[in-house]
Design a protein around this nucleic acid. Structure first.
Length: 164
DNA sequence: GCCAACGTTGGC
DNA sequence: GCCAACGTTGGC
């Protein structure tokens, strides 16, 4: 009897490499980090309502010389209170959030692989099969975005190719 | 460093 | 509830 495979969703998560890079994730204890600091309601809702253990993550470097997807990660813990909001010394402090009623959540994300080559935003733009990605929408700033299984697979293939 | 596009805030 | 002002994001 086949056990039904749990449905897996896919995401793109942005990080500024000067703040937290894929290498930082790889170097973290257990190659895992809590994705603290999300202060956008739409992104929070994706984490809180949709992200499940085992979901695939495209790790995207933003605000850098070559913005693009640099590798893969996976969700290893589902949403829980973002404690950085409670810390007055944290850059992510939010006095409107408290332990009794946390406003912000985070998930845990684990390193999976670094691509042999970055998949730059410019290459994503040029790939017709990726033309519908949220990432390419004008003015799109969401730091956590859903991607389709096809988009995930295509970008993974692009990243794993050694010569393009 | 510029600045367009966006989300949030707060006066009214 | 409107909307101007403001702060942030993020490519370039």
């Amino acid at each position: 009897m086949m056990r039904p495979k749990p449905s897996q969703a896919f995401w793109l998560m942005k990080s500024e490499p000067s703040v937290f890079s894929l290498n930082d994730l790889k170097a973290s204890p257990g190659r895992t980090t809590s994705w603290e600091g999300v202060r956008n309601y739409q992104a929070r809702n994706f984490m809180r309502d949709k992200m499940r253990v085992g979901d695939g993550v495209l790790f995207y470097h933003s605000n850098c010389s070559v913005p693009g997807v640099v590798g893969l990660a996976e969700v290893v813990r589902e949403a829980y209170a973002d404690t950085s909001a409670f810390d007055p010394r944290s850059p992510y402090h939010d006095p409107r959030s408290n332990r009794e009623n946390p406003r912000w959540v985070m998930v845990d994300v684990k390193y999976q692989e670094e691509f042999p080559q970055v998949v730059p935003l410019s290459a994503i733009r040029k790939e017709p099969r990726l033309s519908r990605m949220l990432l390419l929408r004008r003015g799109q700033r969401l730091s956590i975005q859903p991607v389709t299984p096809e988009e995930f697979r295509i970008i993974r293939e692009m990243g794993r190719e050694r010569n393009s």
